[in-house]
Simulated scan of single mutants.
Amino acid sequence: MDEVDRAILGVLEHDGRISNAELAARVGLSPSPCLRRVQRLEQNGVIRGYRALIDPAAVGRGLRVLAGVRLVRHARADVAAFERAVMKLPGVVYCHHVTGNFDYLLQVEVADLPAYEEFHANQLAGLPAVATVTSYVAMKTLG
């Protein structure tokens, strides 16, 4: 990966819908070599995909909660069972395996506080090997 690839990635991070012609102009290439570089970055897994950023409140998910989860056991089977189950829960946007006070940090988006209470008590807390859940309500998200 060279500086041109990094420039392509920098532009695509901010505007994944940019046309190839505009992308090429911004990074100083002609369209054909630019397209080949983008395709190579996709094939090599550097670009993992493209997606729309949705306003959560506009689709009924106005409450964002960061939930720190600790597991009781860290045996491979328990970790795998938790990871499979957590990603099936509606409302879980991201799940990060982290170091520190928690084993996992989740980003959860739901309609409101009663919806999160139901999610926490009836879905998240009952997942395999969950010991504790610590919740942080996001008051504002920057960026």
Rank of each mutant, 00 (worst) to 15 (best):
R26N: 04
D15I: 04
P128D: 05
Q107R: 11
S30P: 03
N122R: 08
V98N: 08
V4K: 13
V38G: 01
P31Q: 11
E117F: 02
A80W: 03
I18T: 10
A57Y: 06
V38S: 03
E13W: 07
Y104H: 03
L41P: 08
N101F: 12
G100Q: 04
R76Q: 10
L106P: 00
L9Y: 09
T99C: 12
L105I: 13
L53F: 13
D78F: 13
T141V: 15
A24E: 05
Y94F: 11
V65T: 06
P114W: 03
R61P: 02
D78G: 07
S30L: 14
V59D: 00
L63Q: 08
G68P: 08
R64D: 06
D55P: 06
M1I: 12
V108G: 05
D103V: 07
R40N: 07
R26V: 04
P56S: 00
E118N: 10
H74W: 02
A85C: 06
P56R: 12
S135Q: 06
M1G: 10
A138L: 13
L23E: 02
F102A: 15
R6S: 12
S30A: 15
F82Y: 14
E118R: 14
V86N: 02
V79C: 08
G60F: 05
G45Q: 08
R40D: 07
A21L: 09
P90V: 00
R51Q: 14
G16Y: 08
L89G: 01
Y104P: 09
P33N: 03
K88R: 05
R26C: 02
G62Y: 07
S135N: 11
F82S: 08
D103F: 07
D55F: 05
G68E: 10
R40M: 05
Y50P: 02
D15Q: 11
T132R: 14
A21M: 06
A77T: 13
L29T: 04
N122E: 13
E13T: 10
Y116F: 15
T134N: 14
R70W: 03
G126M: 02
A131N: 09
R6I: 14
G60S: 03
Y136W: 10
G45S: 04
P128W: 04
V92I: 15
V93E: 14
R64M: 12
D78L: 07
E3I: 08
F102S: 13
N20P: 02
D55N: 15
L53K: 11
H120K: 12
R17Y: 12
M139W: 14
L113N: 02
L35C: 02
A121K: 07
G143T: 05
Y136R: 09
R6V: 12
R73P: 00
I47L: 07
T134S: 15
M139R: 09
S32D: 10
H74I: 01
S30W: 12
V110Q: 04
Y50A: 00
P114F: 04
D55E: 15
N122V: 00
C95I: 08
A121R: 01
G126E: 02
P114V: 05
F119V: 09
Y116D: 06
A21N: 07
V110A: 00
V92T: 06
R17G: 14
V38W: 11
N101V: 15
V59Y: 05
A138N: 09
D112P: 08
V92L: 11
R6A: 14
V110M: 08
A67T: 11
C34N: 05
V108E: 05
V108C: 03
A21R: 10
D78Q: 11
Y50H: 11
A131E: 15
